[in-house]
Nucleic acid binder design. Sequence first.
DNA 1: GGGGTCATGTAATAGGTTACATGATTCT
DNA 2: AGAATCATGTAACCTATTACATGACCCC
Lengths: 192, 192
Amino acid sequence: MPRNALENPHVLAVLGLLLEQPMHPYQMLAELRSRGEDRAAAVNRGSLYNIVEALVAAGWVAVHDRQREGNRPERTIYALTTAGREELVRRLDAQIRIPARELTEFLGAVSHLGALGPDRAADALTERAGRLQERVAAHERNLAQALAGGVPRLFVIEAEYAINCVRSEITWVESVIEEIRTGSLAWPTAAG
Amino acid sequence: MPRNALENPHVLAVLGLLLEQPMHPYQMLAELRSRGEDRAAAVNRGSLYNIVEALVAAGWVAVHDRQREGNRPERTIYALTTAGREELVRRLDAQIRIPARELTEFLGAVSHLGALGPDRAADALTERAGRLQERVAAHERNLAQALAGGVPRLFVIEAEYAINCVRSEITWVESVIEEIRTGSLAWPTAAG
DNA sequence: GGGGTCATGTAATAGGTTACATGATTCT
DNA sequence: AGAATCATGTAACCTATTACATGACCCC
């Protein structure tokens, strides 16, 4: 187990899952992957076992049950402890209060937009806008379906946030395209 | 040198810097750090030398000059090659056209907002909104200063994008706070 | 004279990913 | 019968970070 596995960014995701219900690691993996499309980052099993081990050592998670079906490998169900729940709340609280510097790939690309030249830049941005539209539509479909299925809004609030982010990016991208087309965003030569 | 150092996410940043002017690695580091507050992620020298070595091997970057001042260690100035410039354009183009799944820390936190309970959630979100306001103000000051100093808008366009993102997040956060306060965002018990 | 910056090179460390190994169950 | 899934455990590998090593120059 890595020494500071507790600093692993997936720790919050694991604690969050265990808040919902006790689980064995393989199930966590399945959950994370099924929601992963828009919620969690990809985790692999190697890291996951390390994290769980570290969480147990920290006392935030404890063995809840051991089950055996037939001759399958015994599966160990883990559950949040009280301390784990407190830690989860502490981390959530901190991550909400203090915005991290979220450096996206797109921000890095935009900072060298000049290198593409006006036509290619406008073209690329247009394609992006289209793809973002599709993404918003997909998010909205999922959200509507969940709400129609009776899931409380609080439990899908992050979808609303994601939609908000993508929407505002679309607006920005489209405004830049327009400015390139009208020439109000000037293109200095040797732009970089 | 790592085998796929060319896949390193900092490659684009290095190519972008070299598009502006030839440089030696130490200077790249200084540039990245000085802009780093809102532009580039932190790079350390170990990785940087690996990247430069890989870029040279790929033919995207070549030794431009070797300079020696007094008895200081000789510094090697690298410059973009034509192939390197093409690669930069190719990567920029792709990164703009195809939006990556940008999973932020905040998105992960929001998805477990329920665990904080309504009061603490509203409180934490309020603090975040305040900090985001400060960040917008700082970005705007920098942007205004750059523009006043004669920098073409195209070269600071990424600051406009960053401001747009933060602004829209503030709007969203404030709307959620309001909904928590008025009770229109219901809080199911045992929320997680 | 001491501390900080300029500038590089390289080895050690530790983390995450990938792959190997095992074996039962279920579906086609 | 073969493939895919369930479920774990562990070792190898590769990458990035960190630290060590070197030495000149500049400012106080």
